[in-house]
Design a protein around this nucleic acid. Sequence first.
DNA 1: AGGAGTATATATCAGACTGATATATTAATG
DNA 2: CATTAATATATCAGTCTGATATATACTCCT
Lengths: 190, 190
Amino acid sequence: MAQKNRTRFAILGMLAFQPMSGYDIKKIVDNSIAYFWKENYGHIYPMLAELSREGLIKLQGRDRKKETKGGPERKVYAITEQGKKAVKEWLYQPHAAENSRIELLLKLFFGMLVPMEISIAAIERERDAAINILKELKSIRKQAHAGEQNETSLFPLITLSYGEKHYKAVIEWCEETIAFLKKTTKGMKK
Amino acid sequence: MAQKNRTRFAILGMLAFQPMSGYDIKKIVDNSIAYFWKENYGHIYPMLAELSREGLIKLQGRDRKKETKGGPERKVYAITEQGKKAVKEWLYQPHAAENSRIELLLKLFFGMLVPMEISIAAIERERDAAINILKELKSIRKQAHAGEQNETSLFPLITLSYGEKHYKAVIEWCEETIAFLKKTTKGMKK
DNA sequence: AGGAGTATATATCAGACTGATATATTAATG
DNA sequence: CATTAATATATCAGTCTGATATATACTCCT
């Protein structure tokens, strides 16, 4: 196997919190962990079918939320005992190193091919994006603190603090780098 | 198009420094930018063929390095004027947000499913890995400072400082989080 | 009443990316 | 001269992404 499928475990883990539809899973991922994990419908729906075939989850029923505005019935899936066992097994295993690809840095690495202003502008956009994400994290933290505190709510808080630390570091680096490049450019123009 | 192919531009950018073989490109990527970008042979070789067909690079010749120990002849590719134009165009364009997936955080998010020691051990492994990468970055910085300073060498230094800042932040977060979780566990055991 | 607009929901696909493996060449080693 | 190790190219199954297609049912407006 070239890679292990992690969407599988992301879905199982989410269903361990509560039964949900594919649409719900996407919503929750987008609203609570998007700063470190993303999922696509293109992966979620086929995986729900697969997990269902394997007996790790099962279709609990079809319904329509009361607070919902419209749309077709939701297919709500629940995790099975077998499914819970599978996530736990995965949680026990150490994971491989991430293979991040940071396009900004790749572009900066080739910065000698374009005028300095282009590189600086790219870093400024990165800084602004990071500031926005940090704002979102602030609102997630607010929600988290408003809810009840228990053992389960502990873990979302530590992933949150990772996000905060990361984006603060990114912003810092952007500021420093912009200043550095501007100084260098001025020096070169003489 | 679902995504844009970035391997294409990574290869073109590398060939803008100097003519190289696919094997060389992989080596350079692994040794100088692996902390923010990775490439596979599985992507490099087909892309070299494609870029060659499109006239963005051309086969400069086959040779064997003097300092090399053995192996078959290298196919050395050089970037063409058209290829240079293509990278530059790409460099001018703003890039989309990254979609990082941090498996450690996903596992921690589901931490309530396993004993606390399992989560703590995972963070400890992350911290150790980050410490090792930081060491590698230190050696890259040493090499960089040893070489001649010019406009081109400027950019690798700023990507390097991103890496340093990032991994330092990760280590900090790991230390704080481990301490926090240990304290919490002790409190719970009473 | 009916049409437009919008949120909900499931599904599929081309193309990008990964990690492993297969194949072959040549130098150095013993 | 067989073995080992480094060099080099190539291919493939499986994962992941982003876009798009299809359809349902509610709300709002005229």
